[in-house]
Design a protein around this nucleic acid. Sequence first.
RNA 1: GCCCCCGUAGCUCACUUGGAAGAGCAGCAGCCUUCUAAGCUGCCGGCAGCAGGUUCGAAUCCUGCCGGGGGUACCA
Length: 581
Amino acid sequence: MTTVAPARSGTVYFREVCESTAGALAGLSCHRSLEDVAAMYEAPDRKGLGDSAFPCFPLAKELKMAPQEIASQLAGRMERPRSVTDVRAIGGYLNVWYKPEIVAAEVLPIIAAQGQRYGSAEEGRGRTICMDYSHPNIAKPFGVGHLRSTVIGHSLKRILEKLGYSTIGINHLGDWGTQFGKLIVAFREWGDEGKLAAEPIAHLYDLYVRFHADAESDPGLEERARREFKKLEDGDRDNRLLWQRFRDLSLSEFERVYRRLGVTFDSDAGEAFYNERLSPLIDRLVQSGVARSGEDGALIIPIGGEGEAPLLLRKADGATLYATRDLAAAEYRYDTYHFDRCLYIVGSAQALHFQQLFAALKAMGHDWAERMVHVEFGWVKFADTMMSTRRGNIIFLDDVLAEAVERTKRIIADKNPALEDADAVAEAVGVGAVVFWQLSVKRQKDVNFDWDDALAFDGRTGPYLQYTHARLSSLLAKWGKPISMDRVAWGHLNSEEERKLVLRLGDWPRAIQVAGRQYEPQVLAAALLDTAQLYNTFYQKVRILDGEAEAAPARILLSDCVRQVLAEGLCLLGLQAPHQM
RNA sequence: GCCCCCGUAGCUCACUUGGAAGAGCAGCAGCCUUCUAAGCUGCCGGCAGCAGGUUCGAAUCCUGCCGGGGGUACCA
């Protein structure tokens, strides 16, 4: 178990320890600010080493003493604040154990009083962050690859809002570009109105796949596609109508997926939205000398030195590219939202594109270019064979969710057949498993798609968190009365798990801040798993309702706080928190 | 060729930006007449790709090599 102790949280018990440590250091003629001491403290990751640890190695030279000696001197000299039960020198560390009842008495009333607001912060007050996430391509299936941007973006949105920011969620739909030329050609060639009506995206995707297959042997197709897209861009009526149909049909299918995931947007201005802004933009860039013509008649914005790839603004045939639309979009977003930051939750494969984009914005004289952030993430890979092709070379998210819900229903039928609203619960838990699977791995890592991994229900999974939450809900419902603080006997919260739990809960606000600063929901996933794991151990060992009566209010209060944090954490990750399962 | 990312237990991943290697899964052995067993306990499992360097101290920073992935002007 990775236990995260409050090495750097802004709690009273931690500050007391820092003050005592700084005091003891001063006794050795070593003067350190409170902040420095706090920054040096870390959390031991092994059992038996206490809750906070102060490494003495960096002081050895200055004090001309062995770290072990410094640690034991400090342990001897350090005043024991009331929040501490033990201070020990182990190796070159000063290890600190907190007194659970003090920590609990500080942390739990705050959580109980603040409820859902616990962990909220003000750092983002008055600041707006634009977030570009999901952005699926019209006429292409919503695959598990799109899941990553969607759930990371959605979770970050909630996290940043929790930290006080205003957010603008933007679904920058891939509703423009040369693929529409291909689609138009393919639809006129092989399209079927019946299939389009019945399963629009599947049909359009088939056409798209067929186009590429046929283009291998018939190079003329590509040329026709380019022409059709150019016509579309020039406002050709028939192409425009076809495009509109493809877009409407696709969007309504996407909406269904977003509803299941609980994902929302504040804007779905996609690439097409910026069409009329492109030629003024290009004119401006040419006139100001930022853009110039490149090889073979294309228009470019040079980036960096010789040999570095420029940003391609317009192709030789006059058609624009997605970089052009991204430039226009960035300006539009700044003018419209006056963002403090603009995040692009987009895969690492496009890292160079965003470097170019940000550099181009800078070259255009926008000082806000440095507020643009590419929040990148690794691939969802389909390494091996069998699982790959259900309907082409992509795995439909619909299929994954359907399978997840199906498996969940079987588990419910087996474990809790009397469950009310079993279908709703299966939906929440099945979808939760899939969403959490994406968020439990750090962004930059590639994830291999594997049915059993994506649909896991045991161990460090979304359902594990939901299960713990449901168990707590049921427990608290059985208790069935409000907890009066003055009846809480803090001294009963004295086991290892209870101590670690209250420390973990006290550190929760910091986890949210770290997650927001690093744009990394995984930080929350890990914190919640630790919380749930500690609670389940506690739950297994101790009888809460029918144990010692004097201990019950304290244990119930602890349980209520854990439930509160789990519920809020699940929400920040974009999962539901059912009360039964 | 050049640039970027990754390499930690059999598998999937953490380690709070330099401090004491840690989970889950799988395997083995246990725990349901008691608050939800989607749970809990224990065991097994490591030369952190390899080789150097910086440092009191490196999985973490630097260099080289090996292996995997991505990018590299008219796709997005």
